[in-house]
Amino acid sequence: MTDQAYNFAYLDEQTKRMIRRAILKGIAVPGYQVPFASREMPMPYGWGTGGVQVTAACLVPEDCLKVIDQGADDTTNAVSIRKFFQRTAGVAVTEATADASVIQTRHRIPELPLREGQILVYQVPIPEPLRFLEPRETETRKMHSLEEYGLMHVKLYEDIARHGQIATSYAYPVKVEGRYVMDPSPIPKFDNPKLSGSAALQLFGAGREQRIYAVPPYTSVVSLDFEDHPFVAGKAPHDCDLCGATDSYLDEVIVDDAGGRMFVCSDTDFCRGRKDAGHIGRLGVQTDGGA
């Protein structure tokens, strides 16, 4: 059901080549933000245009695509982007992390460890980790090129001085391969450890800000911290109420107006997989496939 009016995966081949060059440069210099001539896409800036362009440049007809937003395949924006590629590229789609060759994500890294050959594409709103410390692009680029990152630790210092701990819970800054400080996109810091040494290729696309960057497979990614205030990947101190998982990132769901709440895996595919394998949480029921 490919839409014949458009080229495969929407973008024309010349544009894809331009994006692929940016991706290759990003892979060659891990964590470095490569400027690219982002195109207007048929979805708004800020809604994943950077990720969509990177995905479009990576897709081949044999690919199997998974799209998640907030960890879930069925959130509206994930549905919309998945449909876009079904329509313009006609590729196979899946909700199973293990079956996907390309995964586009907003705000999460899947719980299941990724494998070699997989590409994880992140949607990035503000690629510049120094932006809220220094608003000028001209200055932040200089700070990166000269490795002047003292300011980044000043922010963490201020957190501890004020709150007794580093009060950054998502988009937690990292240093890639000992060189570039990078914004991992607004993933919860719980996901930060998965960035490091991953077998998959991780690509980051920021459409409005016209930047692409990359973390190649098996690259070291270190969350910034202090020796006496080490980075901690936090999550809600609960287990999944559906599948009983103790080590997955949880969504909090308000279930009544008397303050009742439950916690469920944010990664819907992971949760379903566990339930199918017979795990049951506090409020879960035995299933045979569907939730």
Binding site: G150, L151, V154, E158, A161, R162, F226, E227, D228
Partner: peptide
């Protein structure tokens, strides 16, 4: 916009100090 301690600490952190205490 940065506290007095942060202001003094910035140069230390810029040259690699990583122990908050």
């Amino acid at each position: 916009g940065v506290t007095a301690g942060g202001n003094v600490g910035e140069r230390l952190m810029a040259v690699g100090a990583r122990h908050y205490g």
